[in-house]
C-alpha cells in the first residue's frame, strides 16, 4: 500500500494523470477528495483539486509480476511458455510461476528461486511505504521440498535417539531449517538448533537429556 497526494484542475483530471503516470488501473487504487477545487470566476480565485490516493496491493503485485516476466524474458528457453499468477492473502503477495524448464528457475537446492524472491521483495519495497512481503513458488516445488525435509528431519531424529548421539544435517535455507525445527518440536526425546553462518547454516539434532 502507498498513500500520496495528487492535484489537478479537476478531480477527474487529477485521477487521469495519476493513472497515466504510474500505469494504474481503475481497480488498483482508492481515493479521497481533500479539496474538490474551484473554477473561480473568470479565473480569479480558481483552485486545483486535491486528492489522497491510496495504491492497493494489487497494483504492486501486478507490477512485480511484470518485473519478473521482464527479467525472465532474457533467458534462453525459460520464458517461452511461462505463466505468472499472483494472489494476495493477509497483505502478502504470493506469486506462482508455471511452465517448462522450471528446474532452471528453481536452481540447485532452490538457489535461483531464492535469489529471484529476494530481488522481487526489494523491488516491491522500493515502491511501497508499508513493508510488503513477496513469496515465490514454482509449480509446487516448495510443497514437495517440505515433504522431503520433514522426512529427513524425522529419520535423523530417530537415528539420534536410537544411537544417543547428535547429528549435523547438511546446510539448508532458513525456510527449510524452520521445517526441521517444527518437525523436531513435535517429537519427544530430541531437540534441534541451528549452527554456523549463512549460507552454510545447518541444523543439529540431538537427544534431549532427561531431567
Amino acid at each position: 500500500m502507498k498513500e500520496l497526494e495528487i492535484t489537478g484542475r479537476t478531480i477527474e483530471i487529477a485521477l487521469e494523470e495519476a493513472e497515466k503516470k504510474w500505469g494504474l488501473n481503475h481497480n488498483e487504487y482508492e481515493y479521497e477528495v481533500l479539496d474538490p477545487g474551484s473554477k473561480g470566476f473568470l479565473k480569479i480565485g480558481s483552485r486545483d483539486a486535491l486528492l489522497k490516493l491510496t495504491m492497493k496491493t494489487d497494483y504492486f503485485a501486478r507490477k512485480v509480476c511484470d518485473y519478473l516476466a521482464g527479467i525472465l524474458s532474457f533467458s534462453n528457453g525459460i520464458s517461452q511458455d511461462l505463466k505468472i499468477k499472483y494472489k494476495i492473502r493477509n497483505g502478502k503477495i504470493y506469486i506462482n510461476l508455471f511452465g517448462e524448464e522450471m528446474g532452471r528457475i528453481i536452481g540447485k537446492h532452490g538457489k535461483t528461486i531464492s535469489a529471484l524472491q529476494h530481488i522481487a521483495n526489494i523491488y516491491v519495497n522500493r515502491i511501497t511505504d508499508v513493508k510488503a512481503v513477496v513469496l515465490l513458488e514454482v509449480g509446487d516445488y516448495k510443497n514437495r521440498r517440505k515433504e522431503i525435509i520433514e522426512k529427513i528431519a524425522f529419520q535423523n531424529a530417530k537415528k539420534a535417539k536410537i544411537q544417543g548421539k547428535r547429528i549435523e544435517l547438511d546446510p539448508m535455507f532458513s525456510f527449510e531449517r524452520r521445517i526441521v525445527h517444527e518437525t523436531i518440536k513435535k517429537m519427544n526425546g530430541v531437540r534441534s538448533y541451528s549452527k554456523g553462518l549463512e549460507p552454510y547454516r545447518f541444523v543439529v539434532i540431538e537427544p534431549q537429556k532427561k531431567r
Binding site: 527479467i71 525472465l72 533467458s75 534462453n76 525459460i78 532452471r104 538457489k111 535461483t112 535469489a115 526489494i122
Partner: peptide, 22 residues
Amino acid sequence: IGKNGRTIKSINILLNSLAGAK
C-alpha cells in the same frame, strides 16, 4: 550490495541461471 552482499550475490545467481546452457 545488500546486507552481507546478499543482493549482489542474488543478482549474480540469477544472471548465471538466465544464461543457462552457455
